[in-house]
Design a protein around this nucleic acid. Structure first.
Lengths: 260, 260
DNA sequence: GAGCTAGTAG
DNA sequence: CTACTAGCTC
């Protein structure tokens, strides 16, 4: 099974790129982030014409996630509250999670908050959001032991996930508390499958639009697949497809594909 | 001599269209309206590479006029006040006029206020602006008897200048006071040279972006060349070039070319 | 409908 | 730099 993750930075602007990519790369599941549209505005028909079932959880302007899947998904949910009934439902206001099952694998598609800048209100929200995610996954694992959690984590776990120029600068997406919050999540039993196959630096999934960052490969690897041990063992490959980032009007992120 | 007028609705957006059109239609003079940029932002170099001298009078966001001319212009002015020294200089704040001489012809390039809606403050401004223009031309004629006044007048002088559906509706660009104010200007000795060659309706220079107005030819002829009698007599043709309006991301106006 | 400003977000 | 909002203009 091939599962891809791609922050498209507006599905409205990127419909063409995404449909073209899906036609050329017929993955079983595509997890999309930053759709930036309410569900009624999502260009469903084009995905369905390609034979994909589509599940969306969007809002106006910001965030928004979706899953396109060749097979229909079971038990689709867009809510932390569905699993954590004691949770303040405010945690579901921002549309950052969508999940569903295919065979015995639970796909969890995430758009982790960016956090703006270290110490800001948004930064604290990001850290608290990650603790909510941890509780959520802890409960989920009880009934769903095989999980493929992927998406835009807005965190580079290690220095090798960042281009040289940004290492050692204590900045957003690389601060110690963010990395620790993500490691606390992963300690439930998840592993970064990209690192099963590639140990060197230099491969990234996001490049700032500014300063010609892509041309100079000044990127970050912040889009990940975290797998439970069974899936991690089965995994055959995990790679970043840089080609769509080279098109005109690209997303700032590239798709990442895992096969297990 | 060929003199064209074209409201480009943002020179930034339309640079490609305008440069392409000028390459194919090497008019002696191109009068441009609604450039919407300050002079330092105007893409001068591209015009100069085509061999044109460029004269601009722009402001941020709104209005803005320019002249591109194969020969250098003499006595360029962007100001009513230059001729009407008793005028309140506030009339020069909106960049709506640029003028210069070539041979013995004075080119006056105008962007007449739109007027928003009948009876509004902007409407009254439009009517008063036309009385200022009349005084301006009266003085100008003393030293410059040969004038080619062109631009976006935002007025359809006669019913045959408007598509069927809008005739008889007392609306902006066709109201009696606007037409009268323009006729008062023309009474100084100007004639609409387009009507020397074409008496029928059905040819327009502006189509609203909305409601597929261009496809249905629901247009208005509001971009004009008004000539003094000597030039009017010499005039050999006057035609509207609809082709640029068919391109993608077009201006809502088409260029109009007179030859005299 | 398609320009523009400003501000926000990333 | 490239998305988004809202309000403005034409």
């Amino acid at each position: 099974m091939k599962v891809a993750t791609w922050n498209v930075n507006s599905i409205r602007i990127r419909t063409g790129h995404v449909i073209d990519w899906l036609s050329q790369n017929r993955v079983d599941v595509l997890c999309i982030q930053e759709t930036k549209v309410v569900d009624t505005e999502f260009p469903r028909a084009l995905f369905e014409e390609l034979g994909y079932h589509l599940y969306t959880s969007g809002q106006k302007s910001y965030n928004g996630v979706a899953i396109a899947s060749c097979q229909p998904l079971k038990d689709v949910s867009c809510s932390f509250y569905d699993v954590l009934s004691n949770l303040d439902p405010e945690w579901d206001e921002q549309k950052r999670i969508i999940t569903g099952s295919i065979d015995n694998v639970r796909i969890v598609n995430l758009y982790v908050p960016n956090g703006s800048s270290i110490g800001s209100e948004k930064y604290n929200y990001k850290l608290r959001w990650l603790t909510v995610l941890r509780e959520y996954l802890k409960s989920l694992l009880v009934t769903s032991p095989s999980i493929c959690m992927c998406g835009d984590f807005n965190i580079a776990l290690e220095d090798r996930d960042i281009h040289e120029g940004a290492i050692a600068v204590n900045q957003i997406m690389a601060s110690v508390p963010e990395r620790q919050a993500l490691r606390d999540v992963l300690s439930l039993g998840f592993s970064d499958v990209f690192r099963k196959f590639t140990s060197e630096s230099g491969q990234y999934s996001w490049w700032d639009y500014r300063a010609a960052a892509f041309r100079r490969n000044l990127g970050w690897r912040i889009d990940h697949h975290y797998l439970t041990p069974d899936l991690y063992e089965r995994a055959k490959s995990c790679s970043i497809d840089v080609t769509p980032r080279k098109l005109t009007q690209p997303s700032d992120h590239a798709p990442v594909v895992v096969e297990f």
